[in-house]
Write a protein that binds this DNA or RNA. Structure first.
Length: 223
DNA sequence: GTCCAGGGCCTAC
DNA sequence: GTAGGCCATGGA
């Protein structure tokens, strides 16, 4: 079986096992992009609290967020953790939206993926996973989102090197799968779901599980 | 009390 | 170029 078939096989297996995850049903693309920053190394439940707080003190628009004092913004997003860092990152991102796109996220949809990704990566506080999450989940661009679980699982399965960098792991998927927004969306969410479902308590014999939440032993795929 | 989330930046070597 | 430290809250 070639890599393309293996990746499709794994996706089908995950989908059969867990069903559609329907990630990021936020009200607006802008809200989804705020969530992408707030969820950095943070559980989504905490992000929801932060977004709820934020929506109570201002409209979820670049202008309104920038109108908040640093203290007000930090206090609102406090539940999402790293609130001082993230407040600065949100401000930088909001300024970018206003200056480059007049605060109109729809304008981003007409920009080439490569250019837009570069612009996002150039912003302080936005790395590859956050940028790609924005592109995929908020802007419906066919970009595969890689995270620690993805690298861990697929290196365990022998499909990439354990020390492979972000772009290399991403290339494994993008070069072997059709650019399908819905599928990329589900695939990433299913990997995270799988990580949460398979943990040490279900595979105590696996001594490799130093990071909670991911054990390839539990992954019943026929390669 | 301990672990760790839907990361990224900075510094030291 | 890369390993290690740091940021911080809340739920299991």
């Amino acid at each position: 079986m070639n890599n393309a078939d293996i990746l499709k096989n794994i996706f089908g297996n995950l989908l059969d096992t867990y069903g559609p995850q329907s990630w990021w049903p936020a009200d607006t693309p802008f809200e989804m992009m705020l969530g992408a920053i707030l969820t950095q190394n943070t559980s989504w439940t905490n992000v929801e609290k932060a977004l709820t707080n934020l929506s109570k003190v201002c409209e979820l628009s670049p202008e309104d967020i920038l109108s908040l004092t640093p203290d007000r913004l930090e206090e609102a997003i406090r539940p999402s953790g790293y609130f001082r860092q993230k407040a600065k990152r949100l401000n930088i991102f909001c300024r970018f939206c206003l200056e480059e796109y007049e605060g109109d996220l729809n304008q981003m949809k007409f920009v080439q993926i490569k250019k837009l990704r570069r612009q996002l990566l150039d912003l302080h506080g936005i790395g590859p996973e956050t940028a790609d999450s924005m592109l995929l989940y908020a802007l419906d661009r066919p970009v595969f989102v890689v995270d620690a679980y993805t690298s861990r699982l697929f290196s365990r399965l022998g499909l990439c090197d354990g020390k492979a960098k972000y772009d290399d792991v991403q290339a494994l998927f993008m070069e072997n799968l059709q650019p399908d927004v819905r599928m990329f969306n589900e695939y990433h969410a299913l990997i995270v779901k799988h990580a949460k479902e398979t943990c040490r308590k279900r595979a105590p014999e696996c001594e490799d599980c130093t990071l909670a939440g991911m054990c390839a032993w539990e992954f019943k795929i026929q390669l």
